[in-house]
Amino acid sequence: MSSGHHEEAATIAAAEQAMQIAFLQDFYQTVRDKCFDKCVTKPSSSLSSSEQQCLARCCDRYAEATQIVTKAVLDMSGLE
């Protein structure tokens, strides 16, 4: 019985891990797509230095925006 419980807890932990990895992949895809849309406009096949700079800043600002949203969500939930 106890071993059954152990196993079950392990299965749940594994499922949670898998979900976290799926989230990080989705998150990464979103950053990638949004920053491409915002920064890359010229039709050439190489990235210009201004596009590269824009991409780096876009990623940093996305991270900043994420922090603000997280805080807002946690604050809201606390008020319920």
Binding site: Q20, L24, F27, Y28, F36, V40, L47, L55, A56, A63
Partner: peptide
């Protein structure tokens, strides 16, 4: 071609940021 280059660059940047994203996601969960 351009998107693949872009993707590789964002991947590197994201590696630097992802431990932070992970900890925020955990706070949410």
């Amino acid at each position: 071609t351009k998107f693949m280059k872009h993707s590789a660059r964002v991947g590197i940047r994201f590696g630097e940021l992802s431990s932070e994203a992970e900890s925020q996601m955990q706070a949410m969960m």
